[in-house]
Amino acid sequence: MKCAALAAVPLVLSGCTGPLSTLSPSGPIAQDIAWLWWALLAGAALLALMVFVLVALGFGRPREVAEGRWVFGMGVWFSLAVLTLTLAGALWIGERMLPHGPALEVHAHARQWSWSFTHPGTTGRTETEGVLHIPAGRPVDVLLTSSDVIHSFWVPQLGGKMDAIPGRQNRLRIEAARPGTYEGLCAEFCGLEHASMRFEVIAHDPAAWPPLLTMEGSRP
């Protein structure tokens, strides 16, 4: 079914791909949010169209207007119904995305202006600079800390973003469906070199997990 829907909008999607695009998701969490976006977009387009048509029709002949129907019928009850539906969907998907149940835990530590990660390797827990290694096909909880200012961990193709705040530890769940390399960046403005605070996430085949990390495994 997903394939059919994807085939229906190939043109739109082809323009939206890219290593940082939320519209070319590579894991179940990012996928859920991408579907949510398309649903929201469709709903919003319909509503906007409806309002524009109503405004255009306002330029017709003057006519009797039932005030209650406009302000309470449309204004209150119609909008409340639409919003409730949206809220219920949001809560449902939000609950699904929360870190419930067991997951592999890795650490991401942010500082101006780089990331270091701690995760399992063949020789026990290993720290790498700028590259996070995770297994594909398994949920991973990233524990986020910062040693200076607020940063934000974001790998658009694998899930949402979460801030790394000094003095706190936050938890974000991500998951990659397939092995591969995914781009990540700091999303919260953090000073002079904010734009260059990028990193990579390498999702490994579960058979090759934990990975054998050599010096090439981490960014210079």
């Binding site: 939320t22 990012a30 859920d32 949010i33 949510l36 976006w37 929201l40 919003a44 509503l47 906007a48 919003l83 949206t86 809220l87 969907g89 949001a90 809560l91 998907i93 939000g94 995305m97 934000s152 658009p156 899930g159 949402g160 973003k161 979460m162 999303a187 919260e188 403005f189």
Partner: peptide
């Protein structure tokens, strides 16, 4: 309408700060 979208928590986790 995009404001309502941003009030949807999961979508906000992607769109925030972009």
């Amino acid at each position: 309408l995009t404001g309502v979208m941003l009030a949807v928590v999961p979508f906000n986790w992607q769109a925030h700060d972009t």
